[in-house]
């Protein structure tokens, strides 16, 4: 490759990098502004004239800390649930023989294709009319069900999550049975073998499942945005989404506050990505190749 071609390629790559990183930098800087000053700033790169930490401090002060904790709880729950589901069912599908195995495998592929737009409104109705929750009677009448109920952020599970089952099953199918058979001969049981032999071997794919679901759950703002109105039960992404949706609707526009909270919200997934990107990027690519 000639040096001039190399230069052109680097130019495009560098330009792309500037564009991808720019909004994060903008958000970080704009969080240091005063609301009124920022309103007239009109800068592409909002380097503050005066660095104010009041907006960032508000994260610890009033409303934002609780949503931050809720986000963590929700991330732990879904990363745990989906990973356990993927490992257990993926292992069963790959190794056990049972009637209906083929059918269940087709089921796993089919549920991933159901358009979520079709399920959106009926799911809301079901949540609102869920029996014996949130003041509802056995017929689902009388209360508000899961709407604005703290558990609503933990009970929902979509067909897309079966992608991870599929991925783990594929990983198991690519692994010879020799290790397990040696363990079985030594008298190790089903779960013992799974946790002591299989899980350590499949660590990379398990890391992919945990991290990808953690980031996706952390960033999901629609579920809390739609189902939660009480600040106590809100998550961070939902809270920021709510503030952003108000930016276009109401008069008072505290952009710096939104940017400070948005920046804080971006830090956890960014840290996960920077330190564990190998698992996230490769896992994502392999999902594409195998799917």
């Amino acid at each position: 490759m000639t040096w001039s071609r190399r230069l052109i390629i680097y130019f495009f790559l560098a330009l792309g990098t500037v564009i991808t990183i720019y909004p994060l930098l903008f958000s970080f800087l704009a969080g240091f502004w005063d609301k009124d000053l920022f309103g007239g700033a009109a800068r592409l790169m909002p380097i503050p004239d005066k660095w104010l930490t009041t907006k960032y401090a508000m994260f610890f002060g009033n409303d934002a800390f609780r949503p931050f904790l809720n986000s963590f709880l929700r991330v732990f729950w879904y990363a745990f649930y989906i990973t356990v589901m993927a490992v257990l069912i993926g292992y069963v599908l790959s190794r056990l023989r049972f009637p209906g195995r083929k059918l269940f495998f087709v089921f796993i592929l089919a549920v991933q294709l159901i358009p979520s737009s079709l399920m959106f409104i009926p799911t809301y109705v079901e949540m609102a009319r869920f029996p014996l929750i949130g003041g509802n009677d056995l017929m689902g009448q009388g209360g508000t069900g899961f709407i604005n109920h703290p558990l609503v952020l933990y009970v929902m599970i979509g067909g897309a999550s079966f992608m991870w089952v599929y991925l783990f099953r594929q990983a198991m199918n690519g692994l010879p049975k020799d290790y397990e058979e040696a363990a079985y001969i030594d008298g190790s049981g089903f779960f013992r073998t799974l946790f002591l032999i299989i899980v350590p071997i499949q660590k990379p794919i398990i890391a992919t499942i945990i991290l990808s679901n953690a980031i996706a759950t952390w960033n999901d703002f629609l579920t809390p945005f739609i189902y939660i109105s009480d600040q106590k039960f809100m998550t961070m992404a939902g809270y920021v989404g709510l503030l952003v949706s108000r930016l276009t609707a109401f008069g008072s526009r505290d952009y710096p506050l939104v940017f400070a909270l948005a920046t804080v919200t971006t830090i956890p997934p960014l840290l996960i990505f920077l330190f564990m990107q190998k698992y996230i990027v490769q896992g994502f690519a392999s999902a594409g190749i195998k799917g």
């Binding site: 958000s27 960033n219 952009y255 990027v281």
Partner: peptide
């Protein structure tokens, strides 16, 4: 560069539309 291009996708729609 591969990492840099990947970063936007790990941010939430809620946080980056504000920019």
């Amino acid at each position: 560069f591969r990492s840099a291009f990947y970063i936007p996708s790990i941010t939430s729609v809620a946080t980056t539309t504000a920019v």
